[in-house]
């Protein structure tokens, strides 16, 4: 019970800190949020218009009062109103969440599959496979999303005409964004998985399984892979965070609605409520993800459950 309470307390702390840091960071950046309301920066807005907007959004209050105000609203579940889009942040962020979660989850799944496939193949195929697998992983991990995405568009949309570059066409439109996000992540996960797979293959329980006469495939898939997956599972929380960063680029390039694109636009226009709103939602998702990966780790490795 105490553990559950501590966990909830920790989550609340994280949300508070995230909101606080974001609020002050965005307000530190040069640029006037009131202008976001008046059609963007550089507007030649009249003094009356600026004053009206500052009053309407409480921007004429001292910064700390604005912060407290925002905090109180956040505590009651009100994410406030967007400066630039003049709509409520809550519904906006929720409407964008789906698109990002969809590509991020698919990409995480695909990255897992790719990494696992590469890891199992390259630990079995001798030296050439080892070097090839290792090399592929390093190359994949060193691919910047923005470049990889553009290259995929050129090859698969312009030259081959296989996959559409934008999302209007349902499932086919998902292929390129998901692949863009998945491949670099797969390179990263693959490196870690392969190392732990090797360790697991040399461990006593695999030896005993072999001694019991279990088939090689059985040994690999049932025992080794389960252990190899452990560090990758615990990395999935982190991976999810990195996918959100990737989504900023991928959603912009593939013109998909989503949190990443919303975040980038909001930062550029100093739309403080939207930046805070997106960051809060990402934090909530991250907290839930770590909860899930913890549970998954415990399932995959019962020792963890005993230890804690």
């Amino acid at each position: 019970m105490l553990r559950v309470l501590a966990r909830i307390g920790g989550a609340v702390f994280v949300l508070w800190a995230v909101a606080t840091v974001t609020f002050f960071a965005v307000r530190l950046i040069p640029g006037d949020p009131a202008e976001a309301v008046l059609g963007g920066p550089g507007s030649m807005a009249s003094a009356e218009a600026l004053a009206a907007v500052r009053r309407e959004y409480g921007l004429d209050q001292p910064l700390f009062v604005q912060y407290l105000d925002q905090l109180v609203r956040l505590a009651t579940g009100d994410l406030g109103r967007s400066y630039a889009l003049s709509i409520d942040v809550g519904p906006l962020v929720l409407s964008q969440l789906g698109g990002t979660l969809l590509i991020a989850t698919l990409a995480l799944g695909l990255a897992w599959l790719l990494a696992l496939a590469l890891a199992t193949w390259s630990t079995r195929g001798g030296r050439v496979a080892w070097y090839l697998g290792s090399g592929l992983e390093i190359v994949a991990a060193a691919l910047p999303h923005f470049w990889f995405a553009t290259a995929l568009i050129v090859v698969f949309s312009i030259w081959l005409g296989v996959f559409p570059p934008i999302s209007t066409s349902g499932v086919a439109g998902l292929v390129l964004p998901v692949v863009t996000l998945a491949v670099p992540l797969a390179g990263f996960l693959g490196q870690i998985m392969r190392e732990s797979l090797l360790l697991a293959l040399e461990s006593p329980f695999v030896l005993s399984a072999r001694a019991r006469g279990e088939s090689e495939a059985g040994v690999r898939w049932i025992h080794a892979v389960r252990h190899a997956a452990l560090p990758a599972i615990s990395l999935s929380g982190w991976a999810f965070g990195s996918l959100i960063s990737g989504a900023v680029v991928v959603e912009t390039i593939f013109a998909r609605p989503g949190l990443g694109r919303t975040l980038l636009n909001a930062v550029t226009s100093r739309d403080v409520p939207v930046v805070v709103g997106v960051v809060m939602i990402v934090a909530v998702v991250y907290i839930l993800m770590t909860l899930l990966t913890d549970l998954a780790s415990r399932l995959a490795d019962p020792r963890l459950a005993v230890r804690s």
């Binding site: 920790g10 702390f13 994280v14 800190a17 995230v18 840091v21 974001t22 960071a25 965005v26 530190l28 950046i29 929380g237 982190w238 965070g241 990195s242 959100i244 960063s245 990737g246 900023v248 680029v249 975040l263 980038l264 930062v267 960051v279 990402v282 934090a283 991250y286 907290i287």
Partner: peptide, 22 residues
Amino acid sequence: NRVLEVLFAFPGLLLALLFILV
């Protein structure tokens, strides 16, 4: 650990973006 969680909960790119903009 709490500090780390806060940092983790921030998308890395946003952290970098805010830092550069400031």
